[in-house]
């Protein structure tokens, strides 16, 4: 899941300062699950914006809406009517959603959250980074623990000298990914794998080759065919 957290309110106030009527849009997917941009956060932020404008003595009308998913143009289409009534939009979706909205409407669209990482839930209210989208998954050889996302240096062949008692040198709160990998391999009884050297990682699929795109020919083709038939 993509995680995000709300931007400092001051920053959002700054964005919307010039406008009198805005729309706050939430997304019912990842940002709802990580409690950063669902219906509830939309309500809270909208209230905060209203209270702030009252304090600042300026006029501001805030509309609220939450889409099923902001990163799909069809869902974003549903904003048409509301978008027509406002001067600007604050989106609480991840960067993908914000850009989808921005692409479809000719009014300013501002981020209400900072998109953080792809992460997993550790427990209620705590999320941790688990994947960096490197495009070439090697979890199969690292016991299901990703050194790309979870090692501070993204090392491929064991820990650096900063491992101290299983913790990373950057913080006592961060586990050394390679320690975790080792423990896991031992647990599985396949610690031989540790000996296998991984070749230097090709970072092109990770974005080094420019913006990435996935095209599923089969799906994309069927859409083209349907359109043709229509």
């Amino acid at each position: 899941m993509i995680t995000a957290e709300q931007k400092p309110l001051q920053e959002i106030f700054g964005y919307i300062a010039p406008y009198e009527k805005i729309l706050v849009v939430g997304c019912n997917e990842c940002v709802t699950v990580c409690a950063a941009g669902g219906r509830k956060e939309v309500g809270l932020l909208s209230s905060a914006l209203r209270l702030h404008s009252v304090k600042a003595g300026k006029k501001l009308e805030v509309l609220e809406h939450t889409l099923e998913r902001q990163c799909d143009p069809e869902y974003v289409d549903q904003l048409k009517e509301l978008a027509g009534q406002v001067d600007a939009i604050v989106s609480l979706a991840c960067g993908c959603g914000i850009q989808t909205v921005a692409a479809q409407y000719a009014i300013p669209v501002f981020p209400g959250v900072n998109t953080k990482f792809m992460g997993a839930s550790e427990s209620q209210g705590i999320w941790a980074e688990r994947c960096m989208g490197c495009g070439d998954c090697m979890l199969g050889v690292t016991g299901g623990i990703c050194p790309v996302a979870r090692c501070s240096k993204s090392l491929m062949n064991g820990p650096c000298g900063g491992n101290s008692s299983g913790k990373c040198e950057i913080s006592e709160d961060v586990d050394c990914a390679w320690q975790l990998i080792w423990n896991r391999l031992v647990e599985l009884g396949i610690q031989d794998r540790y000996e296998e050297l991984v070749a230097a990682k090709d970072w092109r699929p990770a974005g080094g080759g420019g913006p990435r795109k996935i095209i599923r020919e089969d799906l994309a083709a069927s859409k083209i065919i349907t359109e043709d038939m229509a």
Binding site: K40, L44, S47, R50
Partner: peptide
């Protein structure tokens, strides 16, 4: 009591 209710009361 939803945090929103506190904000709404103030609003």
């Amino acid at each position: 009591v939803d945090a929103i209710h506190l904000m709404k009361a103030l609003e």
